[in-house]
């Protein structure tokens, strides 16, 4: 079928495709976050758009990408402690692309992306391992009893959702009282044995993150490693619609992956995540 061969042709040049997806992600991300200090950002955006339309591939320097990097650093400078963690990942990815225009070596770009991915996933696992609230399962216990996770499955469990709503109402009532009185409430569990489930789920999360980080470090091109990584991304999306972060992880996967079908899967994840970000169903 011609459509499939066209798709295959696009997927064959995965670095170009990953950079295009990254550029599109940046456009969406900047559109959503550009409002703050917009007066100072607009001249940079003018440079980005002008250089993209008139000067791309025509100058020695990647002006568009340098200006995009400047815009991300501008937000980091102003809101270092307020921006999301994937803002840092995005900044490092854009810096990798900027440098690639100078060294022109795809293996260096891929090593940047691979090691960045290892650092991000490993750091996430270490942070969880160091948190007593997470490792005891109390974090997931809280999130599930408030209906903050597995939102995609909520329509199937309306009874659990009712319980979560009643827990949230109880918290609201408690919030209205003086905390110095040391009053407490008791959660009704959204399903039986939630404490044990939360504990097991917490340990599985950390183990999977560690395995994924080590696997990407050890065999960054392996089909099985990417299959595991894609499963991790999809599981996170089912747990919580962290579409911004997951789109970036999928773009990283696209850079490193050799298998055409898995590349298509990465592309679909990015496209669906971007659609959910644009419609504000997912987080940016």
């Amino acid at each position: 079928m011609k459509y499939w061969s066209d798709i295959q042709d696009t997927l064959k040049n995965n670095i170009v495709l990953a950079i295009q997806l990254l550029l599109f992600f940046l456009a969406v991300y900047i559109f959503i976050t550009g409002e703050k200090y917009g007066f100072w950002k607009s001249p940079i955006i003018v440079i980005i758009l002008f250089s993209w339309f008139f000067l791309r591939n025509k100058t020695k320097h990647p002006i568009t990408w340098i200006a995009l990097f400047a815009l991300l650093v501008f937000d980091l400078y102003l809101f270092y402690f307020r921006v999301a963690n994937h803002h840092f990942v995005l900044t490092f990815m854009v810096l990798s692309v900027v440098l690639c225009f100078y060294h022109n070596q795809s293996d260096i770009l891929l090593k940047n992306i691979q090691m960045l991915l290892v650092v991000v996933v490993a750091a996430s696992a270490i942070q969880k391992l160091m948190s007593s609230q997470f490792m005891s399962g109390e974090f997931y216990y809280y999130m599930m009893n408030r209906g903050f996770v597995f939102n995609v499955f909520h329509p199937l469990f309306s009874e659990s959702l009712e319980i979560a709503k009643s827990n949230s109402d109880q918290i609201l009532e408690l919030q209205a009282t003086d905390p110095n009185i040391k009053e407490s409430i008791v959660f009704a569990n959204v399903f039986p044995n939630l404490g044990l489930f939360s504990l097991i789920f917490a340990w599985i999360t950390v183990v999977v993150e560690f395995i994924v980080a080590m696997a990407i470090l050890w065999k960054p091109r392996s089909k099985w490693v990417h299959l595991l990584f894609i499963m991790m991304i999809l599981s996170i999306l089912c747990t919580r619609l962290e579409t911004g972060f997951m789109a970036l992880l999928a773009i990283c996967g696209m850079f490193l992956c050799r298998n055409l079908k898995l590349r298509l899967l990465y592309a679909l994840i990015v496209i669906v995540c971007l659609s959910l970000i644009i419609t504000k169903i997912g987080f940016h």
């Binding site: 270092y80 402690f81 963690n85 750091a123 942070q127 948190s131 609230q133 974090f139 809280y142 905390p179």
Partner: peptide, 26 residues
């Protein structure tokens, strides 16, 4: 005392989000 969720350390989802912390002024 920076909250784990912020600062580029990838400590999101390690504890309840700081949004749910309560400022109380008698």
């Amino acid at each position: 005392h920076l909250n784990h969720w912020k600062g580029g350390g990838y400590g999101m989802y390690t504890k309840v989000h700081f949004y749910y912390n309560q400022i109380y002024i008698p």
